[in-house]
Write a protein that binds this DNA or RNA. Sequence first.
DNA 1: CGGCATCCTGGTGGATACTG
DNA 2: CAGTATCCACCAGGATGCCG
Lengths: 129, 129
Amino acid sequence: MQRPNPFDAQCPTRKVLDRIGDKWAVLILILLEHETLRFNELRRRIEAISQKMLSQTLKSLERDGLIRREAFPTVPVTVEYSLTELGRTLAVTVDSLRIWAETHIGTVEAAQRRYDRGAGPDLAETASR
Amino acid sequence: MQRPNPFDAQCPTRKVLDRIGDKWAVLILILLEHETLRFNELRRRIEAISQKMLSQTLKSLERDGLIRREAFPTVPVTVEYSLTELGRTLAVTVDSLRIWAETHIGTVEAAQRRYDRGAGPDLAETASR
DNA sequence: CGGCATCCTGGTGGATACTG
DNA sequence: CAGTATCCACCAGGATGCCG
């Protein structure tokens, strides 16, 4: 079988990458990694997410088999979201991104300030050829 | 110092996460992980990216200190892009995402088909409380 | 509580043309 | 070759209102 090529726009692997590209999805995966949460609990935890985006993101994560949705017929209704086994493996991987971000945020911000200060940071770039 | 909280919209860590959320950025990092490339080479490799998005993405990656841009005064001008040390560490992390995607794409697609088939996949969801 | 339907806007990104 | 500049269409996503 041929190796998936994420640089091809049609590649299914690219679709997965796009899904991860969704920042809300990433945050939800990280949150659910350690506990089961209800809809409004998620809403409160993720500052500034609209309920539209939350419900939309939850639905596609469920469709992808990454999270499990359980509804309990209480009044009012109670709905719990948790990771599936598959989701758990992705959450671990994604969490390493969060860790990278937390670790290197300082370096990145310093680079940004340097870049913003001088339009031409390094003059060594005019090497001969 | 207080732990960065990516669920707070203002958190700088979230900004990094958002950057990774950019699918083009991810693809560029992966491409540059193993070789230095010129502008139009990148353009050819990443199917369907517009030159606007490419140049825009390259610029912000450079600003973040993740890639290095070197221009050579040949005619016509030659520009090479490569990863910085910082960029290399991120590329490694991001690459694990690509691997996850390639590994589990089959499972995800199966889950999607199951979900799309029956609107109510599992009936066990009506547990008592 | 946990959503869905509708409406509406701003900003993302494509297409095109031009330049050093 | 490696971009920048301009214009513009589209739709992601916020706001609001309603419902089981």
